[in-house]
C-alpha cells in the first residue's frame, strides 16, 4: 500500500500545477463523464452513426456501385415497395417458419437434455461435453458437412432414414425438395444450437435449491407435481432467456442457410437475411436494402422489447 501511495505522490508531483488545479476543480460527475466518454464516442461511431446513416440512405435512391450518380430523395418509396412486395413477404414467412420451429424444437429438446444431464449418472460430465460439441463448430463447417450428409446418393442421413423406413435413399432430397428443404435447415440448426439452450436450462435447473424439493417430498408431492410446480416455474426465466437469444440469432440467420441451400430450391428457404444480402450486395440497391434492414431492425427490436417485458414479469413473480 505504501508503494502505491508513493507512486501516487510521485504522479501528483509530476502533474503541472495548472492541470492539477483544473482537475481538482472537477466534480465527481464530470470525472465520471471523462472516463466513459471514449466508450460513448466509440459506441456512437460504430452503432448509432451507422444506424442514422442507414435511415438516411433508406430514403434515397443511392447505389453503392454508382457513387457518382445523382442522389435523389425518394421519401418512403422503398418502405412502401417492401411492404407490398410478395417476395419479401414470402421471405418473412420462411424466416418465421425457421425461427418458430427451431425455437420450439431447441427448447423442448434442450430442456429435456438439461433435465437428463442434471440427474447425476456415471459419466455425465463426458456426455455433457459430447452434447456441447456441435455448438463449438463453425457454421461454415456445419453447413458444409450437413450438405454431404443430406446428399441423396451418398449421404448418411438418407441412408439412416432409408434404414428405418425402407425407402430408397436417393428417392428423397432433403435440400432439393420444396417440402423438405425448410425442415432440413431446421434440423441442422436444432442439431447445432440445442446444446446452447441445454446449457442455459441446466444453469436454471441447478439454481433451484434442494430444500424446495425436500419440502415438496415432505408434503408428498409426486414427481410430476414437483416438475410442473417447482422445476418449470423456477426454470422459466432461464428458458425464456434462451428463447430470446435463439430468436434474435435465428431471425438474422444467414451463413448456415446460405451454405446449405442458398435460399433454394427456388426461393423456398430464402430467409430475410438472404434477400437482404442479395438486394444489398448483388443487386447493389443500397437505398432499398437499407430500408429493408431498418424494417428488420424495428421488427426484431420491437419483438425483443415486448418479450423482455414479459420476461421481467415472469422473473418478478
Amino acid at each position: 500500500m505504501s508503494k502505491l501511495n508513493e507512486i501516487a505522490d510521485r504522479a501528483a508531483g509530476a502533474t503541472p500545477p495548472s492541470l492539477a488545479g483544473a482537475v481538482r476543480g472537477l466534480s465527481d460527475k464530470s470525472i465520471a463523464w471523462i472516463f466513459i466518454a471514449p466508450t460513448i464516442i466509440l459506441l456512437l461511431a460504430i452503432n448509432i452513426f451507422p444506424l442514422i446513416w442507414t435511415i438516411y440512405l433508406s430514403l434515397t435512391n443511392y447505389r453503392a456501385n454508382r457513387p457518382n450518380a445523382e442522389l435523389k430523395f425518394v421519401g418512403t418509396e422503398h418502405y412502401e415497395k417492401i411492404l407490398t412486395n410478395p417476395d419479401i413477404w414470402a421471405a418473412m414467412q420462411s424466416t418465421a417458419h425457421f425461427v418458430v420451429w427451431t425455437i420450439v424444437l431447441q427448447t423442448v429438446i434442450g430442456f429435456t437434455l438439461a433435465w437428463l444431464v442434471d440427474r447425476k449418472f456415471r459419466g455425465h460430465g463426458f456426455w455433457t461435453t459430447v452434447i456441447l460439441l456441435p455448438m463449438m463448430l463453425s457454421p461454415a463447417v456445419v453447413g458444409n458437412f450437413w450438405k454431404f450428409l443430406y446428399q441423396p446418393q451418398i449421404g448418411l442421413f438418407n441412408y439412416i432414414i432409408s434404414f428405418f423406413t425402407g425407402a430408397e435413399p436417393s428417392s428423397f432430397e432433403m435440400l432439393g425438395s420444396v417440402q423438405l428443404a425448410p425442415w432440413a435447415i431446421v434440423i441442422v440448426d436444432t442439431w447445432m444450437w440445442t446444446p446452447y439452450v441445454m446449457l442455459i436450462c441446466l444453469a436454471g435447473l441447478r439454481s433451484i435449491p434442494d430444500y424446495i424439493y425436500e419440502a415438496a417430498e415432505v408434503d408428498r408431492a409426486s414427481n410430476w407435481r414437483q416438475f410442473w410446480s417447482i422445476t418449470i416455474p423456477m426454470c422459466l426465466p432461464f428458458i425464456m432467456l434462451a428463447v430470446l437469444f435463439r430468436g434474435i440469432e435465428n431471425f438474422k440467420m444467414f451463413d448456415m442457410v446460405n451454405l446449405l441451400t442458398g435460399g433454394g430450391p427456388g426461393s423456398t428457404t430464402e430467409v430475410a437475411s438472404i434477400t437482404l444480402k442479395r438486394e444489398a450486395f448483388e443487386k447493389w440497391r443500397t437505398g432499398f436494402s437499407s430500408a429493408f434492414a431498418i424494417i428488420l431492425f424495428v421488427t426484431v427490436f420491437g419483438l425483443a422489447n415486448i418479450y423482455v417485458k414479459a420476461l421481467n414479469k415472469v422473473k418478478s413473480r
Binding site: G176, V178, P265, G266, R278, K283
Partner: peptide, 23 residues
Amino acid sequence: EPAYASLLQAMQKRLHDYVVADK
C-alpha cells in the same frame, strides 16, 4: 447492361422457382 446483376438475379429466381421448385 450496367444493371446486369439485378437482371441476372431476377432470372435466377424466376427460373429456379419454375424449374427446380415447381412453382
